[in-house]
Nucleic acid binder design. Structure first.
Lengths: 212, 212
DNA sequence: CTCGTAGGCGTACGATGTACTCCTAAATCG
DNA sequence: CGATTTAGGAGTACATCGTACGCCTACGAG
């Protein structure tokens, strides 16, 4: 051990961001089902098993993608605006970043609790709520309600937006089986996803404002 | 063709319900990851490919499970109660049925738009909203917001209830990185999933009541 | 009893995640 | 400058998945 104690050969040729970008590009282009170790490795121009030098798991690969998408979120809620506007800013920022890549929405659900980016989102949101006067259990309920709405809205938007084919199929139903569903679907077809999300968020915020 | 026009040999030995019950039992016992064509067939005591006589797809298998779980929902909202109570009754009924089988929650997201049971839930909810005076786009927004909350709450509850290990891990964080998250997690540890769901629903209902 | 339908299932194929093992590129130190 | 050492790159292989295909046979109607 007299020499060569610190040999650091073959520097890593890939950064996490390069891997995440390749995986995200692939997913955007061919859908989440096309995301696999083999396809990502191919996208990076390397052998399948080489990818395992940079990533221990398929799960960690997915985490990289989640982190990568969330990095574009702007976390600077206007500090002197009403707290509802601040919550709106943060929530809309997250939603805009995520729904720019619809195919990866399911990954956010799976890795919700193990991603630093997701936790940063949560922390910012909780800070706004704390400054708005939410404390103790009330803050927990407010936070989880917002989170549930955000996750649910992203999910429904991803696998069946109002203006998409699912709603169209419902509207085409003969009115007998599910009359209200059919009628409402006809109204819903003309509503875009942005308006839907913002109106829903307004409803939740109104509910939050009613209690404290 | 003079005879044997109606030969119906070998009657089906399995009902949809039997298949769904077997798949559900398996999933409850061993988790959603253990649900596969082979395991369900084995649970039913038959060969793998025999299952395909009753089910065209893995997807249809999952739909059977969804339908089966939803059949236990009681759709009889108290007709002379305030509409908020009626919405609560329906929503809580769905949530109770689904969260009795936590492992299948992801299936509800995947098959949300292709299951008769799910559509029945939607129709009942829309009827209550219509009778409460919601019309046109307002009804759409109210419906989708409730749906988003329900789906989001089920999801978050499934893969990380407040009283679970995820929250505990957050509470153990050194306060430096995500101070609000850590502090809030400490408060949240003592909140049960039932209370969380009901309080969140109350918030959403308050928001719905504020607008019309 | 006969016959045709449809249930039961064994085999096989492509895709997936990943463990194991090898070869070799390259940075550091003598 | 060359030797040494460590880590990157990759081929092979295996278990598991969904499922297409085709064979055999149980069974009920005639």
């Amino acid at each position: 051990m007299s020499y060569a104690v610190k040999a650091m050969p073959r520097p890593r040729s890939l950064t996490d961001d390069q891997i995440a970008a390749a995986a995200l590009a692939l997913t955007d282009r061919a859908g989440l089902a096309a995301l696999s170790m083999r396809t990502v490795a191919a996208e990076l121009g390397m052998g399948t098993m080489s990818l395992y030098r940079y990533v221990t798991d398929r799960e960690q690969l997915e985490r990289l993608v989640v982190e990568f998408v969330l990095r574009d979120v702007d976390f600077a809620p206007p500090r002197d605006a009403p707290w509802t506007d601040q919550v709106s800013a943060v929530t809309n920022g997250i939603r805009d970043a995520v729904s720019a890549h619809p195919a990866v929405v399911p990954l956010f659900l799976t890795h919700r609790s193990t991603s630093a980016g997701v936790m940063r989102c949560g922390d910012v949101l909780l800070r706004v709520l704390a400054e708005a006067g939410f404390h103790g259990p009330d803050r927990v309920f407010a936070f989880r309600t917002l989170l549930a709405y955000l996750i649910g809205a992203l999910t429904t938007e991803h696998l069946g937006p109002l203006s998409g084919p699912g709603t169209a199929a419902l509207a085409r139903l003969p009115g007998d089986d599910f009359p209200f569903l059919a009628e409402t679907a006809r109204v819903a077809r003309s509503i875009g996803p942005d308006e839907e999300f913002r109106r829903g968020l307004t409803i939740v915020l109104a509910g939050l404002g009613a209690s404290p």
